[in-house]
């Protein structure tokens, strides 16, 4: 009964990601896109928090948004970089999608 959470706003200007992280369930998944991928910058508390999430929570980031921001080299091991076709597959796989608009 898991939820896929989509977050696309920078965690440094806005509380969407912080709130989302608090409400994640152990079998949920999180897809970072747009400016939300800045959460993966080295040395930030958000990166640390994402790395320490329970292993049962899948964390994805959209490849194109990582590339645009030059973040592909430093991706944490537990974060999977995915393209749009996989995004579509993920959307079908989860029971509900919570877009943090």
């Amino acid at each position: 009964m898991a939820t896929l959470h989509l977050v696309s706003h920078s965690p440094f200007t806005d509380s969407r990601l912080a709130s989302c992280l608090r409400l994640l369930d152990s079998d949920d998944a999180l897809l970072l896109m747009g400016d939300a991928v800045y959460a993966l910058c080295n040395g930030t508390s958000f990166r640390e928090e994402l790395e320490s999430l329970a292993a049962s929570i899948s964390v994805f980031a959209l490849t194109e948004d990582l590339q645009a921001r030059d973040l592909t080299q430093t991706l944490p091991i537990r974060v999977k970089s995915i393209g749009y076709p996989e995004f579509v597959k993920l959307s079908c796989h989860y029971l509900r999608i919570n877009s943090w608009l």
Binding site: L24, D25, R96, L101
Partner: peptide, 14 residues
Amino acid sequence: LTALIKRYDHVITI
């Protein structure tokens, strides 16, 4: 709240 979200078929965050 985590459990609450799971009770619904759809979630919209605005």
